[in-house]
C-alpha cells in the first residue's frame, strides 16, 4: 500500500501538482487518469522522488519515504519496478541485457535462473525471440513492452507503469492490461498505472484517481465513473463520438 499526503510541485512559478492526497492499495491496479499535460507523469515521479515534491509525504507500507535517509530510500527503491513513458531502455544494451539488468544489479541468483526469468517475462509481454535485438531496432510498442518486462522481472513489491499501452494496438493493449492485473493480484503488488486510455479504465480500473490541471477532482471505481457528476471527468470519459452520442441519451 502506498499513501501520499498533500503532494505539491511547481516548476518555476507554474504549479503542476496541487495538494494531492490518496491511497493506492495492494493487489489490484490503481489508475491515475487525466488529459495530456495534467501532471500524471510528474505525480508518478514525485512518488518515487525522481522529482522532489515541494510539499507532502509519501509512505510505502507505512514507511516514510520522504523523510528516509539515503540508504532507507535505496532500500525502498530496490522494491520498485517502473515503466517510463518513453521506455527508458539502456540503448547500449540488448533487449535481454536490459531485462536482465535489475537481476544482475540487485538479485542474487544463478545465471541460468536469471536467463529463465528473462525468457519468461519476455514471453509474457509477447516478445519471445527478441532477446538479441538492440533498442534502436525496436518499434515504439516493442520498446514499451521491453520496458514492462524490465519493470516486472525482479518481482517488485511496487509497480509503476506510465502509459503501459500507449502506442500498442488494441489487442496487445488488452494483453498488457491483463498481464498487469494478473501480476498485481498474484504477487499482491501495489500497482499504479498512469493512463488516458478508456479501454484500460473500463478493463482494470478498480481504483481510479482523476487529475485535472494538477488537482485531484475525483476518485472511485470504473462502475461509478460514468455517473460521477464531475463535469471535467465526464468530458474526459465521453471524449469520442460514440460516447458523446451515448452521453446525450443518458442525460
Amino acid at each position: 500500500m502506498i499513501e501520499i499526503q498533500h503532494i505539491s510541485k511547481s516548476f518555476g512559478d507554474k504549479k503542476i501538482l496541487k495538494d494531492i492526497s490518496g491511497t493506492f492499495e495492494k493487489g489490484k491496479p490503481n489508475l491515475i487518469i487525466g488529459a495530456s499535460g495534467t501532471g500524471k507523469s510528474v505525480l508518478l515521479k514525485c512518488i518515487v522522488e525522481l522529482v522532489k515534491p515541494d510539499e507532502g509525504y509519501v509512505f510505502f507500507d507505512r514507511r516514510n519515504f520522504t523523510e528516509a535517509n539515503r540508504n532507507g530510500k535505496i532500500e525502498i527503491r530496490r522494491e520498485i519496478g517502473m515503466l517510463f513513458q518513453g521506455g527508458a531502455l539502456f540503448d547500449s544494451k540488448t533487449v535481454e541485457e536490459n531485462v536482465r539488468f535489475p537481476l544482475d544489479m540487485l538479485a542474487v541468483m544463478p545465471k541460468d535462473e536469471k536467463q529463465d526469468r528473462v525468457n519468461l517475462v519476455l514471453n509474457r509481454v509477447g516478445l519471445k525471440g527478441a532477446n538479441k535485438k538492440m533498442p534502436s531496432e525496436l518499434s515504439g510498442g516493442m520498446r514499451k513492452r521491453v520496458g514492462i518486462a524490465r519493470a516486472i522481472v525482479n518481482n517488485p513489491k511496487y509497480l509503476f507503469c506510465d502509459e503501459p499501452n500507449s502506442g500498442l494496438d488494441p489487442q496487445t493493449s488488452i494483453l498488457i492490461d491483463e498481464l498487469i492485473q494478473v501480476l498485481t493480484s498474484d504477487y499482491d503488488t501495489t500497482t499504479i498505472v498512469v493512463t488516458h486510455d478508456m479501454n484500460s479504465v473500463m478493463g482494470i480500473g478498480e481504483n481510479i484517481m482523476f487529475l485535472y490541471q494538477g488537482e485531484k477532482l475525483w476518485e472511485g471505481g470504473k462502475d461509478d465513473i460514468t455517473h460521477s457528476g464531475v463535469e471535467q471527468l465526464d468530458d474526459f470519459v465521453f471524449a469520442n463520438k460514440v460516447m458523446i452520442a451515448m452521453r446525450g441519451k443518458t442525460s
Binding site: K45, V48, L50, K73, I74, E75, I76, R77, R78, I80, M82, F84, Q85, G86, A88, L89, F90, D91, F101, P102, M105, L106
Partner: peptide
C-alpha cells in the same frame, strides 16, 4: 546527456542504483 533526457538515468536511480 542522452541518457538523462531519455530517462535512462532515472531508470537507474529508481532501481536504487547510484
Amino acid at each position: 546527456g542522452t541518457m538523462r533526457i531519455t530517462e535512462q538515468i532515472d531508470a537507474l536511480e529508481v532501481m536504487g542504483i547510484n
